[in-house]
């Protein structure tokens, strides 16, 4: 059963009619091919119309679409082989952060990302994609291992934030993220970071220091979620649309401010509409970026990585 967001409803209605028409053709001898074609065209037109004029809040909604591909979906669609690796070697394995060696084309890469769940049970298991400190430490362990074996690192970012729990504090959530930021700057191998869904604050940044930081078209990335921003600045949950507008959280915004390096287009109707096409496109983008980055020396990559992040910020002197 597909899920439709409120602004996708007109598409849902037409798709329901299309389905009815097709059923009709099966049960009777009426020729419906013309009607089907007309309907398909109008669905396409409608989709284009709706997706050309998305508000920032609608993109936030799309980034959380329950049918959207998650990290492990991309891994299975992009990699011919994948060996998942577990554990931070200190406390436990964090199911909200997954990673392992995979093959994309001819290239062995370390892929790491936050993982959300598809149903209630999975969501609980994955803690809604909110890692604990051991998730960030596992990510760092895997990055260091990739560095040791000279393999590039791909991180896929999709989190509503680092988990704000009791044990997370006891085990040093802040320290875990901070250490990743510092260590990722000095990684000698190429690092490509892609926001595939939600990029909430430090929980996202903790695996998002890279030579290329890209955002899928319908994702958001900022210092706080629009809802939480609304709660703090407007003292009410109801100003999330305004908060999304004010914070300018979309891929287009972040690219225009040079806070990320680029946008990865999604298929018409969003990534959830065609997992296969999305993953194939992302694979091409990753391989192209790797070709560029492999041409640089480790020192060049590290210096450029540092310079890029150090140039971010607007001050008046």
């Amino acid at each position: 059963m597909r899920t439709y967001l409120d602004f996708e409803k007109p598409i849902a209605d037409l798709e329901a009619r299309l389905e009815e028409t097709r059923q009709l053709a099966k049960t009777s001898n009426i020729n419906v091919s013309e009607a089907v074609e007309v309907l398909e065209q109008s669905i396409n037109r409608l989709r284009q119309e709706i997706f050309q004029n998305l508000t920032r809040w609608q993109r936030v909604q799309l980034s959380r679409h329950p049918d959207r591909p998650y990290t492990l979906d991309y891994i299975s669609l992009m990699c011919d082989e994948f060996i998942e690796l577990h554990g931070d070697r200190t406390v436990r394995d964090d199911p909200a952060m997954v990673g392992g060696f995979g093959k994309i084309g001819d290239q062995t890469v370390m892929i790491i990302g936050q993982q959300k769940g598809r149903n209630t049970k999975q969501r609980q298991h994955r803690n809604f994609g909110m890692p604990n400190p051991e998730g960030y430490r596992k990510a760092l362990r895997l990055m260091k291992m990739a560095e040791k074996f000279g393999k590039p690192i791909i991180t896929l970012i999709d989190t509503p934030g680092a988990f704000p729990g009791l044990e997370a504090e006891e085990r040093g959530q802040g320290e875990a993220i901070a250490r990743n930021l510092k260590e990722m700057f000095m990684l000698t191998v190429p690092v490509i970071c892609i926001v595939i869904g939600e990029g909430a604050s430090g929980g996202a940044l903790g695996i998002a220091i890279g030579d290329r930081v890209l955002m899928l078209e319908n994702t958001w990335y900022s210092v706080i979620s629009p809802e939480n921003c609304s709660t703090i600045l407007w003292r009410s949950w109801n100003f999330k649309e305004q908060a999304a507008e004010a914070m300018k959280v979309t891929a287009k915004d972040m690219t225009s401010f040079k806070l990320v390096d680029g946008i990865v287009d999604e298929p018409l109707g969003g990534a959830h509409n065609d997992h296969q096409a999305m993953a194939q496109h992302l694979k091409t983008v990753i391989l192209d970026a790797l070709t560029e980055l492999n041409a640089l020396s480790p020192d060049e990559r590290i210096n450029q990585r540092i310079d890029k992040f150090c140039s971010m910020g607007v001050v008046v002197e």
Binding site: A178, L181, Y221, S222, I224, A246, M312, G313
Partner: peptide
């Protein structure tokens, strides 16, 4: 927003 985040 995003600018603050990148100061980290």
């Amino acid at each position: 927003a995003g600018f603050s985040l990148m100061q980290m």
